[in-house]
């Protein structure tokens, strides 16, 4: 464990708490893509299949349980408790375009050809693009509540911090995970546009609005 990864994970944790706070405080899941949240639940469930037979550490175990539980809880909130506040007509990204290629890539690139390992690869590729329905929705509506942008910024920071973590591990442990690194770089790149608007507008006290 190094500080980049620790702060990355804490940023991931913070993003989920911010999202729950957004839903609770506005009593609404307006502006949040159900599709992206469903993809994250899929990512965590398919990645953490090793939860019950591969012990890494208490930290690792606790985080995995938290990510699975919180992603399922968010789906419950969106699907049942705050269902009327979700507008499916603006959440229209075709998730087949993400699920299909991720499955193909997982069949081509994996560390061992076993069910959990192929699912693990699938989850890595899917996580890289799971934010796209959310960013697509943002692009469509052209604006976002400030708290929603904080959620996205914390999620993007988590991904960005994993990059120095990998560089650090390369020098200290002489180790590179090519699947995680490639997918991670793609995933971080997807946030660049968002970060630009976040830094130039939201952090200057303005509303998140995209140029028409």
């Amino acid at each position: 464990m190094n500080l980049f990864r620790l702060f990355g994970d804490l940023s991931h944790l913070a993003s989920i708490i911010i999202l729950l706070q957004k839903i609770r405080s506005t009593r609404s899941c307006r502006g949040i893509s159900f599709k992206t949240q469903a993809l994250y639940a899929t990512v965590f469930i398919t990645r953490y299949l090793d939860l019950f037979y591969d012990w890494v550490s208490l930290y690792n175990f606790t985080m995995k349980v938290f990510f699975i539980a919180s992603s399922c809880y968010i789906l419950y909130l969106m699907r049942y408790k705050y269902r009327p506040t979700h507008d499916p007509s603006i959440d229209t990204f075709r998730v087949e375009y993400l699920l299909g290629p991720s499955a193909v890539l997982a069949l081509l690139f994996h560390y061992r050809f076993t069910v959990p390992e192929v699912f693990w690869s699938f989850s890595i590729f899917l996580e890289a693009v799971a934010i796209l329905p959310q960013l697509f929705m943002l692009q469509r509506t052209g604006e976002a509540e400030t708290i929603t942008t904080h959620y996205l910024a914390a999620l993007g920071a988590y991904r960005a911090l994993y990059i120095p973590n990998w560089i650090y591990r390369y020098f200290t442990e002489d180790m590179v995970d090519p699947i995680a690194v490639t997918a991670g770089i793609v995933q971080t790149a997807l946030y660049l546009d968002f970060f630009y608007v976040y830094f130039t507008k939201v952090l200057q006290g303005q509303k998140f609005e995209l140029p028409a």
């Binding site: 464990m1 890494v56 973590n165 002489d174 180790m175 995970d177």
Partner: peptide, 10 residues
Amino acid sequence: SLFAPAKDEL
């Protein structure tokens, strides 16, 4: 080896 899965990551 240099290339290995980082399974301790989340």
